[in-house]
Design a protein around this nucleic acid. Sequence first.
DNA 1: TTGTACTGTAATAATTTTTATTACAGATAA
DNA 2: TTATCTGTAATAAAAATTATTACAGTACAA
Lengths: 135, 135
Amino acid sequence: MNGQFQIATHVLTLLCKQPGELLSSDYVAGSMNVNPVLVRKEMRKLRACGLIESKEGKAGGYSLALPPQKISLADVYKAVKLPPALGQAKNKPNPECPVGRQINAHLDHLADDVEAAIIKKLSTITIFDFVNQFD
Amino acid sequence: MNGQFQIATHVLTLLCKQPGELLSSDYVAGSMNVNPVLVRKEMRKLRACGLIESKEGKAGGYSLALPPQKISLADVYKAVKLPPALGQAKNKPNPECPVGRQINAHLDHLADDVEAAIIKKLSTITIFDFVNQFD
DNA sequence: TTGTACTGTAATAATTTTTATTACAGATAA
DNA sequence: TTATCTGTAATAAAAATTATTACAGTACAA
């Protein structure tokens, strides 16, 4: 299991709900019951992709770098870099076997197709859309 | 990481390439360099879904229960029951927070949509198609 | 009917991944 | 100059995955 996408989406939701405010990792971590360092780690990825901005020092924190209509869940997915949806084998198939010799190439190609399908789906939903579902 | 889908697909590929033969978990495990018990565990799932058959006793092993044109990779995906593609948070968000109170429901709904997109993609590919890519 | 070669399954250990915790340097506002 | 943040590393704890061992049960074959 892996809650990185959920953490990132949770923070973006909070940022979207409180526009203009800088939210600290402690505040956010409190809303989700998770360690603040984990929040800062995800924020680093989001910032590297230009989705959020951060400000250090007293009264610092995080804010959206783009209007929420411009941030898709596909952007979030790509930013957090989850392990592949089909999993990832770490075995080394037997190169003597005609199947073992080739299968990783075919599985990799398949994994790429699946990732593309996920991204296609997620690209239809923005953080704005997601947040609008809330009461 | 998690190689369960890869194991299942590897076995089905071997079964497809050697129709009529019963392949043992040891033989299969040798082709992929993985523990035979792991193979038997995945086979249990595939059998529960009616994709393969197994025969105990001497000269026993596994065989396809359906023609490979009738087995889609979506069937395999559903059989192995991977963890959700978007991950799965195990935190309990703060119920005092308006976002924390609702977000899991919305994240679950999103996860369902993504799983559906994956299955839709995988349902277009059969084991027969997959194996036909091999030289 | 006895030995051999399998599956099925449980229990446990080893490995890997994820999350939590601690610590502290650096930035910035009051 | 003090308090409150981010950024980051190091390490520990927890959880998930894979490997290993063991053995009961099944089926074939000599």
